[in-house]
Design a protein around this nucleic acid. Structure first.
Lengths: 209, 209
DNA sequence: AACGCAAACTTGACGGTGTCAAAATAGCGG
DNA sequence: CCGCTATTTTGACACCGTCAAGTTTGCGTT
């Protein structure tokens, strides 16, 4: 008979998870390029090579962090979708759309340490990107397209709209806005909320033109 | 009386410029993170510290490369603007708009080594970004807003459109598309041209709604 | 023509990085 | 208790950015 859960199964315990969490914290504090495996290991009171038993190399670790980011991201979006009623937002309305837009940008600007890895070129251009990360990314996009298809199936938008095409363009806009704010090219907080509304207007027009 | 131009003013000659050019080449080949000052110096047959006489540190060098990118970028955009007649594109037409969109994306996708530095977070988030680079970036955006103002002054768009607001949103879209293609998240070449047209349609609608 | 001087370049050294290889240790099933 | 595997450690290496101090070069002045 095995123990129910091997709580502390070794010297340190649940390293792997702590590596992911602490890496995210360190990246948030000092930026991704400043993260070093050695400092990360030291922060967890473990020798420099210990992390390599849980992640093949630094990039694999970052892929893991990005994957965790996708989990959080999906959770955020799902949460808003289910809380529509509680928020007194009527489905398929412009407010609904705006809520989605602001949710996306809030995640991006409030969790840049995740967003950068999730949608940055560093990992996606790399030849060693994890299969699971690639899947998570594709799944996220697919669920976005599915969301638009749902609008279409509910006769909430112009039937001539191509969901895939609209998804590609609108995601580009959301992604571009996110990047410009995260990268500090756009700075003003007020501009953000205003831009969210302008973007929503544009999306709404595309969906009903 | 000084010489008109000090052609070969020292051992090596016009290093500074070769540093900028070769750095761009190396980044294009292996990506920005793979660029090292030492390899760059060696490639030019010069000792490792030589570059530091022309650029304070690695980041300053990258700022220089980015600045060169802005020059090329502005040149590309200007060239299209002046060649409108030769290309048989009537000013302020939808084709005109589409031409601008494709020009932007062509630059981004064909010169990622410059685009990444010009509009990437690496330099803009850094506290040590060069003043001249900052100026170049702002100038580029300002000239974009001015272009839209010109359309407005020519009564070519809906007078209710706020040029700054439209510039921010449309630039976000262009930037987002560029990033997604450069980062290899969107891959298909055909999708690019199609997305350019979809984006143009959206912009056109915003300008004439 | 000689000199001086500043600009351009080199060499040595230091602390930091990712990670390969091999040794050490811990915990669990038999 | 033994042995086996999962986990962690230590040593070593090549590479990186760059500070400090030395060396070369070429031009302007005398």
């Amino acid at each position: 008979m095995t123990h129910k859960t091997p709580k502390k199964q070794y010297h340190h315990g649940n390293l792997r998870q702590q590596l992911l969490d602490t890496a995210a914290v360190l990246i948030r504090e000092d930026g991704e390029p400043a993260l070093s495996m050695r400092k990360l290991a030291e922060k967890l009171g473990v020798s420099r090579m210990a992390p390599y038993h849980h992640f093949e190399d630094k990039e694999a670790l970052l892929c893991g962090v990005a994957e965790a980011g996708f989990e959080r991201f999906m959770h955020s979006v799902m949460a808003v979708a289910t809380d529509l009623n509680a928020l007194e937002v009527t489905p398929y309305s412009k407010d609904h759309l705006c809520l989605f837009v602001t949710t996306y940008l809030n995640f991006a600007t409030q969790h840049p340490e995740y967003y950068n890895l999730m949608f940055g070129g560093h990992l996606w251009q790399s030849t060693t990107i994890t299969d699971s990360l690639r899947d998570a990314g594709h799944a996220a996009f697919r669920s976005y397209v599915d969301m638009i298809r749902a609008w279409k199936n509910a006769d909430a938008i112009n039937p001539a709209v191509d969901p895939l095409r609209f998804a590609q363009l609108s995601w580009s806009t959301l992604h571009g806005m996110s990047r410009l704010f995260i990268d500090g090219i756009y700075v003003d907080e007020g501009v953000l909320t205003h831009l969210c509304h302008t973007a929503t207007d544009s999306f709404w027009a595309q969906l009903h033109g």
